[in-house]
């Protein structure tokens, strides 16, 4: 599905996003990923872990660029449109499935079918808010679930998530993670919770300082190794 060979990524400090990672100006950019090689197969559920600043988000966004036509992204920067309702924000996931005229009319008057689908999705994600509510009135956890719902509503085969549950409690996290895993053929997700990564995913890879340190496909990983990874990073 995806093969990365000797990937080097640079983070452009001047721009907010790291979408254009060309080795252009050395002064304004720092390297975040070093010589990373990785192959992800169809149907795999991969968790990416590692200490803060390890380059996980950069790698994930690069993977999304590669898979963009087949994948739904749930980014840490949620990219919700504050002036739109919960319904419209989630509907944004379906924009590509409809004609622009349909989308425009829907902006003024929601269509029954989508209203029904999105209500069901919200129920599944335990989001018990009126669909007409504007998202700027929601709490952090609720916003995160709207962003998640929008990614799910893209109905893609691949789900790419950057800590999509960081504002939720552990129990809800594992329930929602099950939903995400069940609805997608392949999942690539940056996770904070190491134990959850080990238990719920087929494969765990660990990054540290922009390098691939551990890959459960190549070697068996135990808890001690991962703990060590976070500790060395904390000292350094």
């Amino acid at each position: 599905m995806l093969t990365l060979a000797n990937l080097n990524l640079h983070y452009d400090k001047t721009a907010g996003a790291n979408t254009r990672n060309k080795i252009s100006e050395k002064d304004s950019s720092t390297q975040v990923i070093f010589d990373l090689s990785l192959t992800i197969n169809e149907g795999e559920k991969v968790a990416i872990i590692g200490p803060s600043g390890a380059g996980k988000s950069s790698l994930l966004h690069h993977i999304y660029q590669e898979l963009t036509t087949r994948a739904a992204l749930c980014s840490q920067r949620q990219g919700l449109v504050d002036n739109l309702s919960i319904y419209h924000n989630i509907f944004m996931g379906a924009l590509a499935r409809h004609h622009w005229l349909f989308n425009l009319v829907n902006l003024i008057r929601p269509f029954k079918q989508d209203l029904h689908d999105i209500a069901a999705l919200c129920q599944q994600l335990e989001l018990d808010q009126p669909l007409a509510k504007k998202v700027d009135q929601l709490s952090g956890g609720q916003r995160q679930r709207v962003a998640l719902a929008r990614a799910l509503y893209q109905q893609q085969a691949i789900f790419i998530g950057d800590e999509p549950f960081s504002a939720l409690d552990p129990l809800m996290t594992s329930r929602l993670l099950d939903t995400v895993l069940a609805r997608h053929n392949s999942v690539i997700m940056v996770l904070h919770d190491r134990a959850l990564a080990m238990s719920a995913f087929d494969r765990v890879i660990a990054l540290d300082k922009g390098r691939l340190i551990l890959d459960s496909q190549q070697q068996s990983i135990d808890q001690a190794q991962i703990t060590a990874l976070y500790q060395t990073s904390a000292i350094a």
Binding site: T69, A72, L73, G79, M92, W100, N103, Q154
Partner: peptide, 17 residues
């Protein structure tokens, strides 16, 4: 928001939403 919207969506939908 534009980054999140599916790239295959047409420009009018992407721009309005």
């Amino acid at each position: 928001p534009l980054e999140i919207i599916d790239r295959r969506a047409d420009i009018i939908s992407r721009f309005t939403y």
